[in-house]
C-alpha cells in the first residue's frame, strides 16, 4: 500500500519547503501533505562546496518528508480492489461483501456507506 501511494504522490516542493500531493482517482480532489520547511531555506551557499552540501541536505530532508507524507496519505486513501485506483475516504464505500470505490459500486450496482460519511456520523 505504501509503495502504491509513494508511486502515485506528486512532488510539489519548492526550494523553501517540501510538500507532496495525491489526487483522488474518483472525485479528483487534491490532498496535500503537511508542508515541511527546508532547514537551509533562505540561505545562499557561499561556495561551490556549500552548494553541494545544501543539495545533499535538500535531498535527504526531502526523502524524510516524502516518507512522512506517504504515512499521512495512508490515513485517507484506500485502494479499490476492483479498479486498483487510490481513492479518498469520501469516495470509498464499505460494502456488505467488499469495500470498493463509488465508481465501481455504481458499475456493479453494489451498495455501501462512504468511510468519511460514517466517520463523521460516529464523530
Amino acid at each position: 500500500m505504501r509503495r502504491i501511494i509513494k508511486a502515485s504522490m506528486e512532488d510539489i516542493s519548492s526550494m523553501e519547503r517540501f510538500q507532496f500531493s495525491l489526487r483522488c482517482a474518483v472525485c479528483g480532489s487534491l490532498w496535500e501533505s503537511q508542508p515541511a520547511r527546508f532547514s537551509k531555506a533562505g540561505m545562499q551557499p557561499e561556495s561551490e562546496g556549500k552548494r553541494v552540501i545544501f543539495q545533499a541536505l535538500y535531498q535527504r530532508e526531502r526523502e524524510d518528508v516524502f516518507e512522512r507524507a506517504a504515512t499521512e496519505a495512508m490515513e485517507y486513501f484506500s485502494l479499490c480492489p476492483i479498479c486498483k485506483r487510490l481513492v479518498c475516504d469520501r469516495c470509498f464505500l464499505l460494502g456488505e461483501d467488499i469495500d470498493l470505490c463509488t465508481d465501481c459500486a455504481a458499475f456493479l450496482q453494489e451498495h455501501g456507506e462512504p468511510v468519511e460519511g460514517l466517520s463523521a456520523e460516529n464523530r
Binding site: M1, E75, V115
Partner: peptide
Amino acid sequence: IPELARISASTVKTHNRN
C-alpha cells in the same frame, strides 16, 4: 491492517468500530 488490507487508516477505524 492498512498495509495488509490496502485500505486507509480511517477505513480500518470504521471497520473496527463496527
